[in-house]
Amino acid sequence: MKWFNHAKIETNLILMGVLTLITVSIGGLAQIVPLFTVATTIERVEGIRPYTPLELMGRNIYVREGCYTCHSQMVRPFRDELERYGHFSLAAESMYDHPFQWGSKRSGPDLARVGGRYSDDWQAAHLRSPRAVVPESIMPPYAFLDRPLAYADIAEHLKAQRAIGVPYTDAMIANARADLEAQARPEADPAAFQGRYARARQAAFDGDPAAVTEMDAVVAYLQMLGTLVQFRDVTPEQMRQQ
C-alpha cells in the first residue's frame, strides 16, 4: 500500500484533516445520536414526578457526600438482582435525575428501591452510626447530617432543574420553600403540598419535627427512591420501550 501510508498522511495536511474529521465524527455520533432519540427510548409510565424540594436537597447532599461511589441506583435486568432488590429499573425512573446516579460500583447495596424498605428511624439511626444497627457494616458515619439544612435558595435549585428540562411548574417554584417545610413537618396541612407532589410522604424524617435538618432531606430522598412507579398497575406492554 505505497499510495496510502503514514508517511503520506503525515505530510499531507488536507488528507490528515479529512481523516481526523471522519474519526472524530464516528465517536461523536455514537455519543450524540442517542440524545436525539431519548423521547422514543424512555418508556412512559404513570407515577413519575419531579423530586419535591426536600427530596431534591437530599439528593444534592447524596451527591455532595459521594454516596454514589459505593451505592449504585440501578437494578439491572438479571434474575439475581430482581430477587434481591425488586423490579428492574426503568429509564423513566431516572428521567429527572441530573446527573443520573446509576453508578457502577457496589461496596454497599443498590439503593434504587430502598424507599419504604426500612423505617425513617432506622434510616436516621443508620446514617448517624451504621454499626450501631448493622454491626458488619463498613459504611462511614454521617452523624453531622443532624445540622440545619441550608435551603434559603431552594427556589433557585428548582429553577436550575427546570432550565435543564425538569417540568417544575411556576406554582412549584413559588411554593418551594413552603413545600420543603411542609414535608418535614407531619402536622403541616398536606392539601397544597400533596396537590403539587402526588403521594409524597410528610414526616419528621429525623425524629424531630421542629427543625429542618440535612438528615430530614437525605431520609426523605432515600425513602422515595424506587417508589414512584406502582408496578402492580403497570402492564408489560407499557414497560416495553416505545
Binding site: R84, Y118, D121, W122, A125, H126, A132, V133, V134, E136
Partner: peptide, 19 residues
Amino acid sequence: ANNCAACHGAGGQGAVGGF
C-alpha cells in the same frame, strides 16, 4: 438476611434504638 437483618440484626439480635 435480605429484608429483615438491617433492622433486626443478622442473627435476629436486634439493636438499641427501637429495633
